[in-house]
């Protein structure tokens, strides 16, 4: 009686088990490593690309003091942006990399370097 019940339960578990997941793992093992990539893997953004694109955003922003544009420039002190402009620049950077920066993080970005660092650490930026 007990044996019969345990067989049934085992059979039920076997059919209910997520088969696709198992076969996916097998598939992944069978495929050459170059062809498999997790969706959660980091993007192809390098620090140089990020820097270049942030510079492009800043060059498009006509209030920026272009002569002082560098990767250590402070938005306020070097680029001559006030607090409202800084908000706009950060929003433009958000748009450029298709990310949403939460308010408290956005408030902390006050230099070009901080912007580059932030985007570098955002896995979902692209």
């Amino acid at each position: 009686m007990f044996r019969l019940a345990s067989f049934r339960i085992a059979a039920a578990i076997r059919t209910a088990a997520p088969r696709p997941a198992v076969s996916l793992v097998k598939q992944r093992l069978a495929m050459p490593s170059m062809m498999t990539r997790w969706y959660s893997a980091g993007g192809a953004l390098t620090r140089d690309t990020i820097k270049e694109r942030i510079f492009q955003v800043l060059q498009d922003f006509d209030k920026v003091n272009q002569e002082k544009l560098s990767d250590v420039a402070d938005f306020n002190k070097d680029l001559g942006l006030d607090s409202l402009d800084t908000v706009e620049v950060v929003m433009a950077i958000e748009e450029e990399f298709s990310v949403e920066i939460p308010d408290d993080e956005a408030d902390k970005i006050t230099t070009v370097k901080e912007a580059i660092d932030y985007i570098t650490h955002r896995e979902d930026a692209h």
Binding site: D60, F61, D62, E88, M91, A92, E95, E96
Partner: peptide
């Protein structure tokens, strides 16, 4: 194409 890319 993007919204605020060229805000001015």
């Amino acid at each position: 194409a993007s919204g605020a890319r060229r805000p001015n």
